[in-house]
Design a protein around this nucleic acid. Structure first.
Length: 230
DNA sequence: GCGACAG
DNA sequence: ATCTTGTCGC
């Protein structure tokens, strides 16, 4: 698998913000989207500085897992809110190269445009992956919204500086909501709809995101027991 | 100045 | 993200 070169990693500290601002101008805001056959979920697990980036691909309607690839490596960048992509994307791209199937849409653990510079990891990654991407965040980062209803499927748009940049979505009745935003190449309404279609019975997270979450920890655990089998 | 802050 | 005991509920 090959991706279009935007810039290389690591990125010098003083250039990170300008890269985000530049990429923001290239977001595609007039997209259309077809129903996906294959969806992809990406998540990382950590043990101190060792991290496992795992990509799970599954059938959107049957939830059958069709492929799983990963990459384990020491991460060099520390976590800084708003700069998550610079820490996690290098590993994600190395795992992505091992993927043989062609996903229609990619879910991320984190935000897309729901970000101070509209360039969360889901948006940033889209320029490398050249696929529609969706950001699913489990906790609040920024933005204002009206009070959210308690019933499953209810949502409110999130705004910042007068623009809609995502949505707070009640994926399960009475359960803590998630924050959905587009990464790139699709509309927010479609991102919300696809996210809800992925939500199962036992989790507030879309199933593909939950699987990536589970497997990232499992892969890292197995790697630490026998590192040579990478 | 102070608090907030995806993973 | 990760570290962790107990606890509530189907």
């Amino acid at each position: 698998m090959q991706y279009k070169t935007i810039h290389t990693f690591p990125v010098e500290e003083e250039k990170k913000e300008s890269i985000q601002i530049d990429l923001r101008k290239q977001l595609v805001t007039t997209p259309y989207f077809h129903s996906p056959k294959i969806v992809c979920g990406i998540d990382l697990a950590y043990k101190e500085n060792l991290a496992a980036a795992v990509i799970v691909a599954m059938d959107h309607s049957t939830h059958e897992i069709v492929e799983l690839v990963y990459h384990v490596e020491e991460v060099m960048e520390s976590y800084v809110p708003g700069m998550l992509a610079f820490r996690e994307l290098p590993l994600i791209l190395k795992a992505w190269e091992k993927l043989t199937i062609e996903p229609d849409v990619v879910f991320f653990d984190g935000n897309g445009m729901l970000h101070p510079r509209r360039m969360g990891i889901a948006s940033h990654a889209s320029f490398f992956l050249q696929k529609p991407t969706i950001g699913i965040a489990k906790t609040y980062l920024l933005g204002d919204h009206k009070p959210l209803g308690l019933k499953q499927g209810e949502y409110e748009f999130m705004e910042d500086q007068g623009e809609v940049i995502g949505a707070i979505v009640r994926t399960q009745t009475g359960v803590k909501p998630v924050y959905v935003s587009i990464g790139n190449y699709l509309a927010l309404e479609d991102a919300i709809r696809l996210s809800m279609e992925q939500v199962g019975k036992i989790s507030r997270l879309p199933e593909i995101v939950r699987q990536a979450d589970i497997y990232s920890r499992k892969i890292l655990r197995e790697y630490m027991q026998s590192p040579k089998t990478i």
